[in-house]
Amino acid sequence: MPSRDGSKTVGTTESIILGITLSINNLAGGFDAGIIHLNIWAISSISGLFSYICIGLSAFIGAKFAAQRLGPSASFISGALLDSLTRVVNILKAGHPLM
């Protein structure tokens, strides 16, 4: 999603909206963990760690390579990748009882 004010940077309000939006996914993860009686502290710690790693690596790769090569279509492609990943995860969850 491009910056609301066209500045090509993410401001405080945009960061808050993005954080809330990304955190909604954790509601489903917490619900799933509760149903199958997993340790909520371990799941939260692992989820947080991998979130930071993935966001950091993706930001680095996006800034270093993708933004220069993809130009204006980078936002569209990142959205399409996110949508594709969501669909794959949902398909995997439907076929595996513990996912």
Rank of each mutant, 00 (worst) to 15 (best):
residue 29 G to R: 11
residue 30 G to E: 00
residue 30 G to C: 03
residue 30 G to T: 04
residue 31 F to H: 11
residue 31 F to C: 10
residue 32 D to C: 12
residue 33 A to L: 03
residue 33 A to P: 07
residue 34 G to Q: 03
residue 34 G to D: 03
residue 34 G to P: 01
residue 35 I to H: 12
residue 36 I to A: 06
residue 37 H to A: 15
residue 40 I to K: 12
residue 41 W to H: 14
residue 42 A to W: 07
residue 42 A to E: 12
residue 44 S to M: 08
residue 44 S to E: 04
residue 44 S to W: 05
residue 44 S to N: 08
residue 46 I to F: 08
residue 46 I to P: 07
residue 46 I to S: 09
residue 46 I to A: 11
residue 47 S to I: 05
residue 47 S to Q: 12
residue 48 G to F: 07
residue 49 L to R: 05
residue 49 L to H: 07
residue 49 L to W: 08
residue 50 F to K: 03
residue 50 F to N: 03
residue 51 S to P: 06
residue 51 S to R: 14
residue 52 Y to R: 04
residue 52 Y to A: 14
residue 53 I to M: 09
residue 53 I to Y: 04
residue 53 I to Q: 06
residue 53 I to G: 05
residue 55 I to E: 09
residue 56 G to S: 04
residue 57 L to Q: 05
residue 57 L to F: 09
residue 57 L to A: 11
residue 57 L to D: 06
residue 57 L to G: 07
residue 58 S to P: 06
residue 58 S to L: 11
residue 58 S to C: 12
residue 58 S to W: 10
residue 59 A to P: 02
residue 60 F to D: 09
residue 61 I to T: 11
residue 62 G to S: 07
residue 62 G to H: 03
residue 64 K to Y: 00
residue 64 K to H: 01
residue 65 F to Q: 04
residue 66 A to C: 11
residue 66 A to N: 05
residue 66 A to S: 10
residue 67 A to D: 04
residue 68 Q to P: 08
residue 68 Q to G: 10
residue 68 Q to L: 09
residue 68 Q to T: 10
residue 68 Q to S: 14
residue 69 R to G: 02
residue 69 R to I: 01
residue 71 G to E: 00
residue 71 G to W: 00
residue 71 G to N: 00
residue 71 G to A: 01
residue 72 P to I: 00
residue 74 A to W: 04
residue 74 A to Y: 08
residue 75 S to K: 09
residue 75 S to E: 14
residue 76 F to A: 11
residue 76 F to M: 12
residue 77 I to R: 01
residue 78 S to N: 03
residue 79 G to F: 06
residue 79 G to P: 00
residue 80 A to T: 02
residue 80 A to E: 03
residue 80 A to F: 02
residue 81 L to Q: 05
residue 81 L to K: 02
residue 82 L to A: 15
residue 82 L to F: 14
residue 83 D to Q: 14
residue 83 D to W: 15
residue 84 S to G: 15
residue 84 S to F: 15
residue 85 L to N: 08
residue 85 L to K: 05
residue 85 L to G: 14
residue 86 T to D: 13
residue 86 T to K: 08
residue 86 T to L: 13
residue 87 R to K: 14
